[in-house]
Each structure stands twice: as structure tokens, then as C-alpha cells.
Design a protein around this nucleic acid. Structure first.
Lengths: 126, 126
DNA sequence: TTAGGTGCAAAACCTTTGCCATCCC
DNA sequence: GGGATGGCAAAGGTTTTGCACCTAA
């Protein structure tokens, strides 16, 4: 299962070659530069397959569009309210928080997602 | 601007009467008990208006559907991976984090969103 | 009176799916 | 060969929008 195809490889390569946390549509347009007749359905299918196999991460960020990431370690994000871009934030992930909340609530907690909001450097200047 | 209508009042009342962070569709069905011929478009329109005026909060949680909250203070959430329900987590919001990340990144940070994932009490038992 | 709101339906948008041809193992 | 995958197009689900009518201020 999870056969190797040039479509899948191309999609992975695009994801690994960017830090922009792209949407499915952006990936589609990039991959088309390599495989012009690839279909959007194939991109969606492969993104899901790659998520399920754990090779990439679907980011559960705000906004309507799903965004994907080839970085598989848990890390935090920052989203600029002006340009909409998503950046990685390299602050150590605080695992203690999960334990504290688990004790207080009785929920079983596997992980957390943290997203900062504001205005990025570029947009502050302009 | 922002006229008071029975539709808008009914929507607000539904939101204030629940802690379930409902989706637009759920709100629609609740409001229909009061105003049977209200249209889904009106619900969406009012949810957006209420968000813009700051009377309610649109939660930027994972998943595809937008969810809304009449609680306007910043607080954290927990989402159960089994039943999909969203709960409030009453842990103090750590404002320091924003400052630390702002210093480290140069971004202007207004706030952050934190969401825990795991399995809720109910689903653990069953 | 009149700008803003409503209901309805159609459109827009993102994502999934069905079908059949094709390809990988 | 046979099941997984691809391309295409149609369907699905959520949200927005255009328009004519209504209503709160």
C-alpha cells in the first residue's frame, strides 16, 4: 500500500521545498509546473494519504482553507492578520501544559496547538 | 447601523444559552424553533455582523466548520477527537507568552489561540 | 422616509467521490 | 494480474451574494 508515484513524489517535494504552509490549491499550482496535467483531485487525494501515513501534517489553523506542512515535529505558528501568511515560531513546545490541563479536567490530552496572531515584520513596515 | 431585529436577538440568545460552541447550522436549527421561516443566509449574515461588532467570537478551531462563541474573553479550548465536541478549558491565559515570542520574532503579537486535543471523559468511558 | 435587514434561491468555493483507464508491485 | 492510483467531471457541503420586498429608526 501507499504506492510510489511521480505525482505523490512531486507533491512531497513541493511541500518539503517550502516553509509557507501552503494550501492544497497552492500545492496544485506548484506541482503543475512539473506535471501539467495533474488533477486537483489527485492533489487532494495524495495530501490525505500523506497525512494518514504521517508523512506530512495537516495544520488545523484558523481560516477556511486546510494547510499542510512537511515538518512533522510539533511546533507553534504565527499568522499575520494583514497578509495572511503563516510562519513557524521556534519556541520550545511546553509539554507540561498538557499534564496540567489533563489533571484539572480529567480529559486525556495528546497534544496542543498554539497559534499567535498579529502583524508580521513586513506588514508593520509597509 | 446594526439595527436590532428579532432574528439577530434570537441568534444572540441561542449563542448565550449554550456552551457548546455551535456551528452556524446548529444555530440555524435552534433559531428555527423560535422563528420557523428564518433563512440560513440570515443566520450567516448575522453571525458575521455580530463577529465584526465584537458581540460574539468566531472560534478559529480546527475542522472545517466555523464555530461561534458568545464568551468574549480569551480562553482556551479542548477538542475531543472522538465525539468532536469543544469544551472550554479554564486555565489562566498566559499573556507573557505573547511578549516572549514578540521579542524573539519581531512580530507584533495581539493574542494567541490555544487548543488541546485528546479524548474527553465521556468518550474515555465508553 | 430610508438605509439596513430579510427570505429565497442561485452562485461561489473548497473538498470529496465515482468511474474507468492506467500504472506499480 | 490485480489492486492501488490518476484524470476527469460531477456531486457534496459550507458559506456568500443578488435581488426584491420589508421594517426598524
Amino acid at each position: 500500500m501507499l504506492r510510489r508515484t511521480k505525482q505523490k513524489e512531486a507533491i512531497l517535494e513541493v511541500l518539503r521545498g517550502t516553509t509557507s504552509h501552503p494550501t492544497a490549491d497552492w500545492v496544485y499550482n506548484e506541482v503543475r509546473k512539473e506535471i501539467p496535467n495533474i488533477s486537483l483531485g489527485t492533489v487532494y487525494r495524495n495530501l490525505r494519504l500523506l497525512c494518514e501515513s504521517g508523512e506530512i501534517l495537516e495544520l488545523d489553523l484558523c481560516g477556511t482553507l486546510s494547510r499542510f506542512d512537511a515538518r512533522r515535529d510539533n511546533h507553534y505558528h504565527f499568522r499575520c492578520g494583514k497578509c495572511g501568511l503563516v510562519f513557524d515560531v521556534d519556541v520550545p513546545v511546553d509539554m507540561e501544559m498538557d499534564k496540567i490541563v489533563a489533571q484539572r479536567t480529567g480529559f486525556m490530552i495528546s497534544y496542543h496547538r498554539l497559534e499567535f496572531r498579529g502583524v508580521c515584520k513586513n506588514c508593520q513596515e509597509s
